Amino acid sequence: MGKLVYGSGNRSFDIEDRALAHLRVVFMNKLRRGEPFMFHHAEPHVSCSIWIHPAVPIVFQFHGSRPPSMNREWIEVLMQEASSANGLRMLPEPAPGTVTADALG
């Protein structure tokens, strides 16, 4: 289980390493393009939304020693979600080959 730390360490989220690795790619690409976005995270009994902006420090802490393999389709779905009016919500990983170009808009 990894951890996403946002801001000066006062807000953190426990996120499974594989999902966190995919989120890191999405955050990096959105912020590199100068596109801040809303991130929604839900845990048992707690739900919160935070504005992801390049001026706020972000730390991705991974528990595992090996980097997870990446699913490009999942990254594309998450990128589309982050660009939506509702912001980024953690979506389940699609099976390889199940996301079509039409589904991505």
Rank of each mutant, 00 (worst) to 15 (best):
E43Q: 15
P44Q: 10
P44D: 09
V46G: 04
S47I: 08
C48E: 12
S49E: 11
I50C: 10
H53K: 05
A55E: 11
A55Y: 10
A55V: 14
A55C: 12
V56M: 04
V56L: 10
I58F: 11
V59S: 13
V59T: 14
F62I: 02
F62V: 01
H63I: 01
S65H: 14
P67D: 14
P68L: 04
P68N: 02
S69F: 13
M70Q: 14
N71E: 03
N71F: 06
R72Y: 13
R72E: 15
I75H: 05
E76T: 00
V77A: 02
V77Q: 08
V77G: 01
L78I: 03
L78F: 07
Q80H: 09
Q80K: 12
Q80A: 12
A82C: 03
S84D: 05
S84I: 02
S84K: 00
A85S: 06
G87M: 02
G87R: 06
G87P: 03
G87A: 15
R89C: 12
R89H: 01
R89M: 02
M90C: 07
M90D: 05
M90T: 11
L91H: 07
E93W: 06
E93A: 14
A95S: 15
P96E: 14
T98N: 05
A101Q: 07
A101P: 02
D102F: 07
D102R: 04
A103M: 15
A103F: 10
L104I: 06
